[in-house]
Amino acid sequence: MELVTPGLGLIFWQLVTFLLVLFLLTKFAWKPIMRALNEREASIENALSAAEKAKLEMQGLKAENEKLLAQARLERDRILKEATEAGNHMIEAARNKANEEGDRMIANAREAINTEKRAAIAEVKNMAAALSVEIAERILRKELSNPQAQQALAQDYIKEVTLN
């Protein structure tokens, strides 16, 4: 029973001392310690959130860069495509022009040839006409060298004229 009987004196001293210590420790130890801990935690929290924010910003920047890069790439592709197209177009145009020129030249040449041909044919015809006239003259001259033949011919002409 001795052990489980609380002594009045000890209860008194315990309560007085404990409450005094509670007061002193609260004032001089716990409050400053808790405040310092909270402050430090807040500063760590702030630093962490700032770091997080910086990270996010970095990510934003990186995304922005990526976007710019992608845009640039697209632009390049577009320019390249356009250039290719323009080149193709130019080649096509040049080819067409060359073809046209060739066709035109061929047509010109053909026309020239035709003209030449016609001229040549006309000349041949003229020459043939002249030749035949000459031949006819020579033949006539030879034929008409005898007076009988001249007579006959004149007869013929007269016949023809009377008929008309």
Binding site: G9, W13, T17, V21, L25, A29, W30
Partner: peptide, 25 residues
């Protein structure tokens, strides 16, 4: 209300507590 062995020990321990935690603070 004597300062018995336990009370003396109590005083000693709270002195220790006060010193240590005030130093830490």
């Amino acid at each position: 209300f004597s300062i018995t062995k336990n009370v003396a020990s109590l005083f000693l321990s709270v002195t220790l507590l006060l010193i240590i935690f005030c130093v830490i603070a």
